[in-house]
Amino acid sequence: MTPAPAELICSAKACRRQAESAVIWRNPTLHTADRRKVWLACADHRDHLRDFVQLRGFLLEVIAVEELTEADG
């Protein structure tokens, strides 16, 4: 079962704020095509986390945490 959005905490270092977004990414040299890694992000860290994986070519999408499914781990 996917946790309720209120239980999801931002993945940024030392941040304990509630996550609003999910940065979905994959490193193609390490992960299979069906693997979806998730970093949770509060409003303050969403752009930073997105830009970090996008710069490396790993970004798949950014979605609201309410849109996460079991497939997203």
Score class of each variant (00 low, 15 high):
33 A>R: 11
69 T>V: 05
23 V>H: 01
29 T>K: 15
26 R>H: 01
28 P>Q: 04
35 R>E: 12
71 A>F: 11
22 A>H: 03
38 V>A: 06
54 Q>V: 04
47 D>K: 14
36 R>D: 03
1 M>R: 07
50 R>G: 03
5 P>T: 03
70 E>L: 12
60 L>T: 09
37 K>G: 05
35 R>L: 01
2 T>I: 13
41 A>P: 07
59 L>M: 05
27 N>V: 07
53 V>E: 05
54 Q>P: 00
44 D>Y: 04
33 A>E: 13
60 L>R: 11
20 E>S: 12
73 G>R: 12
24 I>S: 05
28 P>A: 06
24 I>Y: 02
63 I>G: 04
57 G>I: 02
49 L>G: 11
41 A>N: 05
10 C>Y: 05
29 T>V: 11
57 G>C: 02
37 K>N: 15
27 N>T: 08
18 Q>S: 09
7 E>V: 01
35 R>P: 00
50 R>H: 07
10 C>R: 10
57 G>P: 02
29 T>D: 14
42 C>M: 04
52 F>N: 14
29 T>A: 15
20 E>W: 02
48 H>M: 11
61 E>K: 10
27 N>G: 09
65 V>T: 10
6 A>I: 09
70 E>P: 04
54 Q>F: 01
69 T>Y: 02
30 L>E: 13
10 C>A: 10
6 A>P: 00
15 C>N: 08
1 M>Y: 06
63 I>N: 06
31 H>V: 08
70 E>V: 10
23 V>R: 01
4 A>L: 10
40 L>R: 07
3 P>R: 08
